[in-house]
Computed example of a mutant assay.
Amino acid sequence: MLLDGEEWRDMFRSNRTEAWRLETLPQYLVPQESGELAAFRAGERIDPHTYTSAYVKALKEHHAAGKRKGRVRIVTRPLSEYLEFEFSRYYRPHVLAGEDIRILDVTNRANPLEGVQDFWMFDRSSVVLMNYEPDGCQISRELFEGDPAPFLAYQRIAVAESVPFEEYVSSPG
């Protein structure tokens, strides 16, 4: 079943304990980000401590309600312009709002999740496959109808093989 609009938003509103994401692509082409990306290219930066958005507000509410939200982002160095944008524009304020963002750098090593596609997992039981074109343009979101056990394993591997976002960006290299 494809998810869009209210059905997609309901996945976030109705989760009881955790929403978790695996991000595997070097970039995502999101039309809503075009203005922010242009500002980033022009040298504009945000203060992650004072930045607010609907997503940051929702993260804070989610966190205050005792729910966890996290993700692991797979990257290779050198970081692309898009990743530098994403790190400064989204990840820094999202971490400050309570999201557990981790980075899995596969620059000089095998990717332990090679071939695994992007997905969201809710309450460790519902999985939504994120379908993208190779360039990062989203095709669809599809509710996975099978056993979530492989995705739980992917989450365990991703978390075990990654480091917290702040540790990653503060380390040399």
Rank of each mutant, 00 (worst) to 15 (best):
1 M>V: 11
2 L>A: 13
3 L>K: 04
4 D>M: 11
4 D>V: 09
5 G>T: 10
7 E>T: 13
11 M>H: 01
12 F>Q: 04
12 F>C: 01
13 R>I: 00
21 R>E: 07
27 Q>F: 03
30 V>M: 09
32 Q>D: 14
33 E>Y: 05
34 S>H: 03
35 G>C: 13
35 G>V: 12
38 A>T: 12
42 A>V: 10
45 R>Q: 06
46 I>N: 07
47 D>H: 13
48 P>M: 07
54 A>Y: 10
56 V>Q: 02
59 L>C: 12
61 E>D: 11
66 G>L: 09
67 K>I: 08
75 V>L: 01
76 T>C: 03
80 S>W: 05
81 E>G: 12
82 Y>P: 07
86 E>D: 09
92 R>Y: 13
92 R>H: 14
92 R>D: 13
96 L>I: 03
96 L>S: 01
97 A>W: 00
106 V>N: 10
106 V>K: 11
109 R>C: 09
111 N>M: 12
113 L>T: 06
113 L>S: 05
116 V>C: 01
119 F>V: 01
120 W>E: 03
124 R>F: 01
128 V>H: 08
128 V>D: 08
133 E>S: 02
148 P>W: 03
153 A>Y: 10
155 Q>Y: 02
155 Q>S: 03
155 Q>P: 01
156 R>C: 07
157 I>F: 13
158 A>F: 03
158 A>D: 05
158 A>P: 04
161 E>L: 02
162 S>P: 00
162 S>D: 04
164 P>K: 09
